[in-house]
Simulated scan of single mutants.
Amino acid sequence: MPLLRATVRRVLMAVPLLFVISVLSFVLVSLTPGDTAQAILGTQATQEQYEALRSSLGLDLPLYEQYWRWLSHAVTGDLGSSLFSGETVTNAILTRLPVTLSLMFGALLVSLVAGVALGVFSAVRGGVLGRLVDGIALVGFALPGFWVGAMLIVVFAVALRWLPPTGYVDFAESPQDWLRSLVLPVFALALSGIAALAKQTRESMLDVLNSEYIRMARANGVKYRSIVFVNALKNASVRVVTILGLQAVALLGGTVVVENVFALPGLGSLAVNSTAQHDLPVIQGIVVYFTILVVVINLLVDLAYTWLNPKVRTS
């Protein structure tokens, strides 16, 4: 029951958050250079045609009135239509959402498995593995995702021809080609996550393994493997969950860059194109969906804390 109340509280707190972020995004996009009507008509249109299109799109209204018109429809679930294609914003987002979610979940899975494995074994073995984790962390934090993606394309797609350089294949069309199209962008996204999780897991494991109750467990004859994977790893998992939650939120921004590098038809590439065209309804819709994803991620992290440590109570 307390968990249910905390969950409802988190959901209710998301409402003002959505409002504030939608206002900020609306204002910031309106301040960027460019004009939607001019982009649609091109340079050959007359001033009369330009003014007529601005009026039909509602772009001649004050900014606060434009926002109010969008908000009054958004609260009913209608996010409007693209000013360029006429496609509904909801349909435009939902057709691209699976691409972005595939990238995010793939990168999180790779980061979790590789990062935790490296962190645990480096904490247990030490020596060379410890220095290797430090090296991976340094490289992972220093290299930007777009550079890593470009290098992966050069090596594995152009030179070795093992994987496709760009594009996305739907899972329903070919599961094998779907997986091959995600390998390079997922690894480009996951590198920083692997570095962060490996570093934090190693430090957390070392803290737990050097604690008094672990030494008592070893003195009482408890198997070392059980100590590592049951006692130490469980206690270290709270920090791992924290880093994983932060990584999931960071991936929302990372997908914007990586999707454009690998020409993937996800929300990131849609956001870039819509911003360049001043397509406000699409941008606002993407902001709403991204904010909802952040709220869901934070809620899952809170639930994971409670599951890993029943003494934790969300406030």
Rank of each mutant, 00 (worst) to 15 (best):
D35M: 04
S122K: 02
L189G: 00
V154H: 10
R125E: 09
H278T: 02
L244M: 05
V23W: 04
L3V: 13
D279V: 15
V23P: 03
Q284T: 13
N273A: 14
S226T: 08
N231R: 08
D78Q: 12
L3F: 11
R313E: 13
V295K: 10
I194Q: 04
A52E: 09
L182D: 13
N210M: 11
L189K: 00
Y50E: 03
P281S: 11
F19A: 09
V15D: 12
W147Y: 11
G135D: 06
L163S: 02
R313W: 02
V228L: 07
N260C: 00
D207F: 11
L299D: 14
F171W: 15
V11S: 14
L143D: 13
V116K: 05
F229P: 00
T314V: 09
F84K: 14
V27Y: 04
G42S: 03
A107G: 07
N220F: 11
T95K: 10
E212L: 03
T46D: 02
D207V: 14
S211W: 10
G135C: 10
W70Y: 13
G245Y: 00
D207K: 12
G149D: 06
L83S: 11
L244R: 01
A137W: 08
S269A: 08
F262Y: 03
D279Y: 10
A236H: 01
V169W: 04
I243Q: 00
L129D: 00
L191K: 06
V301L: 08
L270H: 00
A45D: 08
L59M: 12
K223A: 13
P2G: 15
A117K: 02
V222G: 07
V116R: 03
N91G: 14
V155H: 01
D134F: 11
T36D: 04
R131L: 12
V249E: 02
R131M: 09
T291G: 05
S85T: 14
A276M: 13
R313P: 01
Y224G: 10
A117Y: 02
N260D: 06
T95H: 05
S122Q: 04
A198L: 03
Y67F: 09
D302N: 03
L71K: 03
R69Y: 04
A52R: 12
A159D: 12
A137T: 14
R313L: 12
Y305K: 15
G149P: 14
L31F: 15
T32E: 12
L109D: 08
L59Y: 10
V238H: 03
I297F: 13
V258G: 01
G119H: 07
S81M: 09
F84M: 12
K199A: 02
T291Y: 09
V258K: 14
E259V: 08
R125C: 11
V8Q: 10
L252R: 06
N235D: 02
L59D: 08
L63D: 11
G86K: 07
P16F: 05
G77R: 15
F187G: 01
G77K: 09
Q284H: 06
G86H: 05
R131F: 03
G119N: 02
P310C: 05
A37E: 13
L270R: 01
L184W: 00
L267R: 15
R218G: 10
G115M: 05
E87R: 06
S102P: 02
T306G: 15
L160C: 09
R69S: 13
T166R: 15
S22E: 05
M151W: 10
I40L: 05
A217S: 13
G268V: 12
Q38N: 14
S122F: 03
V296C: 15
